[in-house]
């Protein structure tokens, strides 16, 4: 499940973009070093990226549910290529999807890299997969590890989408409902993905004679640990932000700076705090009062005749610009 630009606030989008770019930059630095020794990795990353991209287009049936899902592939990549290379490959897949299929978006790319790449490659792979799979020689352990790691990664990825959406406050879907909508199906998808991943690994091991993936580079553990910490913190902050404004209208009015409209309503400390956070992190000033002031009994400005006329005029102007820009190209033809 991909996060979309339309549901994202710039603060959430930019924070995740920054977090993911940091992770990618660290990954790129580490890889640049290991590429000198093992230049094969470049070719492997490229074709495995293409493979995962293609494999994501194939739906699998989820037994007993009548519905279908598709592979995320982050865990498979981390197992085959190591966490850093896996992260970079997932990021590239997500970028191509965002551009060609508008799956996700430009601003949402960071959030998606985080949900689908950082979570699986940098957190669940070292924490769950490596711990459970051991040296990768026992098929039972590998299967168990893959199923658990994949189930957790799709579920956490979906949770990330829900948290980011709620923290952005663009839609009114309350977090608990959103989560109940997302989690069961992603549990099922992740379970099947785990089975498929384990099966693919086993088949590969047979062909390639004891292939068990790349070992975790020794120096990575510290950085990965700090990412786990960062992710936990982010999750904490997000869920706090998300729960800090269960009532969407209240939240958005606060964001408009129109708190005086809610003077009767008790504004708790958390609200004020989160508004301050917003104030500090906001890229753009959100605090102008919309021109039309509410009439009695109406909490927020809506539409006015002037607004409708103006919207139509704006559209007409946009169309006019389009016509003007269009003409020269016509004339050439």
């Amino acid at each position: 499940m991909h996060m979309a630009d339309a549901l994202l606030s710039p603060e959430v989008g930019a924070s995740f973009l920054a977090a993911s770019l940091t992770a990618l930059a660290i990954g790129a630095r580490r890889l640049q070093a290991s590429l000198q020794e093992d230049s094969q990795l470049v070719a492997l990353m490229g074709v495995l990226g293409a493979f995962v991209f293609a494999a994501q287009m194939i739906n699998f049936s989820i037994p007993g549910t009548g519905s279908s899902g598709h592979l995320g592939g982050g865990m498979l990549l981390a197992i085959l290529l190591g966490p850093w290379a896996g992260l970079i490959v997932i990021a590239s897949v997500l970028l191509v999807q965002a551009l060609f299929f508008a799956d996700g978006g430009l601003l949402a790319w960071g959030a998606n890299v985080f949900n689908l790449g950082v979570v699986s490659c940098l957190i669940l792979y070292p924490l769950i997969y490596c711990t459970l799979a051991g040296d990768g020689n026992s098929r039972t352990r590998v299967t168990l590890a893959a199923v658990l790691a994949c189930t957790l990664s799709t579920t956490l990825g979906a949770t990330g989408v829900a948290l980011e959406t709620a923290a952005s406050g663009i839609t009114r879907l309350p977090l608990p409902e959103f989560l109940t909508l997302m989690i069961p199906i992603h549990l099922a998808i992740g379970f099947v993905e785990g089975l498929v991943t384990a099966g693919v690994l086993a088949a590969l091991a047979q062909r390639r004679g004891g292939f068990s993936g790349r070992p975790l580079q020794a120096g990575s553990r510290g950085i990965i640990a700090s990412f786990i910490l960062a992710a936990l913190l982010t999750g904490g902050v997000l869920s706090w932000l998300a729960s800090a404004h269960p009532d969407g209208l209240e939240w958005s009015i606060e964001r408009l700076g129109a708190t005086h409209l809610l003077e009767e309503a008790p504004v708790d400390a958390l609200h004020r705090q989160s508004a301050q956070v917003q104030q500090i992190t906001a890229i753009l000033p959100d605090y102008e009062l919309p021109a039309a002031l509410p009439k009695a009994g109406i909490v927020a400005p809506g539409v006015s005749i002037a607004g409708i006329v103006g919207s139509l005029a704006t559209l007409a102007l946009v169309a006019l610009v389009a016509l003007i820009l269009r003409r020269p190209s016509r004339r050439i033809k």
């Binding site: 770019l21 630095r29 470049v42 990353m45 074709v47 990226g49 970079i88 490959v89 990021a91």
Partner: peptide, 13 residues
Amino acid sequence: LPAVLVNQVLFLY
């Protein structure tokens, strides 16, 4: 953006 990432995008494509 890191060359490894950009190259990866081009290779993937």
